[in-house]
Amino acid sequence: MSRIDDSKEFIPVRIAILTVSDSRSLDEDRSGQVLVDRLQAAGHTLADRQILPDERADIADQLRQWCANPDVDVVISTGGTGLTGRDVTVEAHRDVYEKEIDAFGTVFTIVSMQKIGTSAVQSRATGGVAQGTYLFALPGSPGACKDAWDEILQKQLDYRHRPCNFVEILPRLDEHLRRK
């Protein structure tokens, strides 16, 4: 089972938060704030925070900008992962991904099933990698953001987490792009 290896030193990562919403402002962004509060409490650094409307090209452009920024290791978006016509965050993420982390959505669904039962089937949470940066798209509810952080991301973004974690392979995500 998973555990924290206290003999290893914690390594903070730099995380950008994107809220996708046609109606929220920064003051009203409870889901984004949940993520900011949790990442900072865990010892990570908030690299940037933005709010964008549900526009696929704009979302993808922002994701690409953060992926090109050496001061951003992880991007977490919240909102726009549902089934309605304006929910385009998943498509924007997939426009940017080099590799999808298929099991992220599966594990998120398992976590959600324990909280909201079969309503979890409506989530399209996803994760991927682009330009050496991790990207995760979460639903727009504060509860879903808490669940994703507390049950998945907090552990996987902790270098001390065993048997494995995302941080330990972070330096190798873009190894195929480097000259040999």
Rank of each mutant, 00 (worst) to 15 (best):
T19I: 13
T19G: 14
S21W: 12
S21G: 13
S21E: 13
S21C: 13
D22N: 15
S23K: 14
R24K: 15
R24T: 15
S25R: 15
L26C: 12
D27M: 15
D27G: 15
D27T: 15
D29R: 08
R30C: 14
R30A: 15
S31I: 06
V34F: 10
L35H: 07
R38D: 12
L39C: 13
Q40P: 05
G43L: 10
T45E: 14
D48M: 06
R49N: 07
Q50T: 13
L52T: 10
L52E: 12
P53G: 11
D58M: 13
I59T: 06
I59N: 06
I59K: 07
A60S: 13
R64E: 12
Q65H: 10
Q65V: 11
C67R: 04
A68V: 02
P70Y: 05
V72E: 04
D73R: 02
V74Y: 04
I76S: 00
I76F: 00
G79I: 03
G79W: 03
G80N: 02
T81G: 02
G82Q: 01
G82M: 02
L83T: 06
L83M: 09
G85L: 03
T89N: 09
T89W: 05
V90T: 12
E91L: 12
E91D: 15
A92T: 08
H93Y: 03
H93Q: 11
R94I: 04
D95L: 10
D95F: 07
D95Q: 13
D95G: 04
E98V: 07
D102E: 12
D102C: 04
D102F: 04
D102M: 04
A103W: 03
A103T: 08
F104P: 00
G105N: 03
T106V: 09
V107F: 05
T109A: 05
S112W: 00
S112R: 00
M113Q: 02
Q114P: 00
K115G: 01
G117R: 06
S119P: 00
S119I: 01
S123P: 05
R124C: 05
A125L: 06
T126M: 04
G127W: 01
V129R: 08
V129K: 07
V129H: 07
A130W: 04
A130T: 06
A130C: 14
Q131M: 12
Y134T: 06
